[in-house]
Amino acid sequence: MTTTQPQTEAPTPPGAPRGRAPLTWRQRLGRWDVKLSPYLYISPFWIVFALVGLFPIVYTAVISFQDWDLVRNTGTFTGFDNFAFVLQDREFWLSLRNTFSIFVLSSLPQIIVATFIAAMLDKNIRAKTFWRMGVLLPYVVAPVAVALIFSNMFGDKYGLINSLLNDLGLDSIRWHVDVIPSHFAIATMVNFRWTGYNALILLAAMQAIPRDLYEAAAIDGAGTMRRFFSVTLPQIRPTMIFVIITSTIGGLQIFDEPRMYDTNGRGGSNHQWETITLYLYNMGWGEFNFGRAAAVAWILFLIIVAFGLLNFAVTRRFIASDTAAKPKKPKKVTK
């Protein structure tokens, strides 16, 4: 842009210093246009984010240091008391355990199955669109409706699954009493809803893989499995990281499913399936202790950030180790 400047079109005031002729209004506008417009165009997002994202986060931090009265909108400063209480609360650690347990039981199988489904949908099958839309269907169902359907299946006494087990001569599973079964049931609801969604995202990534890579691999004698692990997985790595990060964030924030899992929505008589978000909600709206709830929110925020970063690092290293590892090897050799 600097090249155009010397040839000033607009009249320069006589006696203006040489070398750097002052810019005309139009020129300045033009300059600003180039320099500032991109920021202007992305500003709506950032303004909205500042209002509904950043401000609440900061405000929550302020509240978390106070004994907060939601109704009167006032509080007294209590320092780290809220955090100390939460970190010493047995319920908090139980809910943390539950959150991670449900997260592992949902995200892990979910991503594996989603990748498999995506790989299958990527093949030449008949009625492609039908199958692709089909896997997305559960996503369209509202979580509350999902919970209603599944609570019918996971009833302790009259549930579908236990009836089947009894018919087979097996004991009933106490879905609402024992810890792991309750986590399994909730993870099933989550998986039901999100597997298809993730599969479609991964499918989109797979479709973008150049077909000649597969052809070349096939000519080199790579079988189906080999092609999947050495071509498909490395190629969808960025998308895979995206899917893993989003499902981590989502998984750590599971709320609807455990809340709808029984009719009290408090996570069980012994906090068997109370997740952190449920703990947060109960703390706020159940006990009206918004200072502590804000502290929980911040702790959860930090956990998610830490876990997201960890995940990012791990996935970068392990997924598609082929492409990631190869450039390193020659370096080592040269040493």
Partner: peptide, 16 residues
């Protein structure tokens, strides 16, 4: 049978 649960509703009908 926990109140308002599905088992509770079914138990009411089944004479539990």
């Amino acid at each position: 049978l926990q109140q308002w649960g599905d088992d509770w509703a079914a138990g009411m009908a089944n004479g539990d």
